[in-house]
């Protein structure tokens, strides 16, 4: 109980530093690589930065440590409070989508921490990306606190405060820069490789009876297709001139596969293998690229559904037909 902070005094205010330590950075790196990312929580409750008083601003955030770190490192030199909601260790945006960063939890957390006795004003600054979970007018009605939506990025907080708690349209807009996309790619590639273990297992078994066993060239062409779908397509996302993610991945997948079947000599020497791969691998890249819709910051639910209705049957059929060609060409 005590490690999640549920056992302690809910009204305790913990003072926290704004500098990240080495351990915090290592923790962030591990999360990006998918190590222990589901248990990276901090206890919900009220925290303080500097020496705040009753008129100091209150920021509301989630109890995912990566979120907490990226907020507190932007608060250096300020005196303020941070109200951490229990979002089950999930970031603000995802928790808002699930409703755990929501009206109910905020109203309850205000009551539990006794916030109305800690500060004399009635303003809360919420990250704008928490808005899908919050009902600002309900929070006001039930707790008396006004919700002010701050900037999307914590790095704009000081500018936001300096402008009298006004966010510019630029601060309100979500971006998806090359850097944003790149840091997300390990969490596309690693699960992709886990799925690929299944494929490697099948090829290993096939090699016992294969007339042309699968070798290093097969490994490279396959790995290339996974990397195209999980890493290259996300990084090049805006410059591939189509809008559906699967099509973006498929186009790059065709380029890679066509090059590799020629470079490894299957084209023109082994047409079954060449066309087998040309059917299977671009579709595999397309599948992985389509999964990146989950990480992207601009795809809509209805759009993804429409894309999947088109793409999933095509991916399924091409992979099945291509696998049959490979089986005929290499195994029997």
């Amino acid at each position: 109980m005590s490690e999640c902070g549920c056992g302690g005094d809910p009204k305790e205010i913990r003072n926290i530093p704004t500098e990240l330590r080495f351990g915090d950075r290592i923790g962030a790196l591990k999360v990006r690589l998918g190590i222990g990312r589901d248990s990276y929580k901090i206890p919900p409750g009220l925290y303080s930065v500097g020496t705040p008083n009753g008129t100091s601003p209150v920021f509301v955030s989630a109890n995912y440590k990566l979120t907490f770190d990226s907020l507190r490192k932007e608060l250096g030199g300020l005196d303020c409070y941070i109200l951490i909601l229990d979002t089950k260790g999930i970031n603000v945006w995802c928790a808002a989508g699930k409703g755990t960063f929501g009206t109910e939890e905020l109203v309850n957390r205000i009551a539990k921490t006794g916030l109305s006795e800690v500060v004399s004003h009635r303003d809360l600054i919420l990250p704008q990306l928490g808005a899908p979970g919050m009902c600002a007018h309900e929070v006001k009605r039930r707790s008396g606190f006004n919700v002010i939506y701050g900037p999307v990025r914590a790095s704009d907080i000081k500018k936001f405060l300096a402008a009298g708690m006004e966010a510019t349209p630029e601060m309100r807009t979500v971006k998806f820069t090359a850097r944003d996309r790149t840091v997300l790619t390990p969490m596309e590639f690693i699960p992709g490789m886990k799925l690929s273990m299944l494929v490697f297992g099948m090829l290993f078994l096939a090699n016992f009876i294969a007339k042309e066993p699968f070798g290093t060239h097969d490994l490279y062409i396959y790995l290339g297709a996974v990397i195209v779908g999980t890493v290259i397509t996300p990084i090049l996302l805006p410059i591939i001139p189509v809008s559906a993610f699967s099509l973006k991945g498929w186009i790059l997948g065709v380029c890679w596969t066509a090059y590799a079947v020629w470079a490894y000599g299957w084209l023109p020497d082994d047409l079954l293998t060449a066309f087998g791969y040309l059917l299977v691998l671009p579709s595999l890249s397309a599948f992985f690229a389509m999964n990146f819709t989950g990480a992207s910051t601009y795809t809509s639910f209805s759009g993804v559904i429409r894309e999947m209705r088109m793409a999933v049957p095509i991916i399924f059929v091409t992979i099945a037909v291509g696998a049959v060609l490979l089986f005929i060409g290499r195994v029997i």
Binding site: A136, M290, T299
Partner: peptide, 30 residues
């Protein structure tokens, strides 16, 4: 440009906005 996050509908005090929001993520949908 709408990504159907639902923030506008949820925060509209007059219920003037409707949007079918959901997780725009292929893996989750599958």
């Amino acid at each position: 440009k709408c990504m159907e996050c639902g923030a506008c509908a949820k925060n509209c005090p007059l219920n003037a906005i409707s949007v079918k929001s959901g997780v725009g993520c292929a893996t989750a949908i599958i």
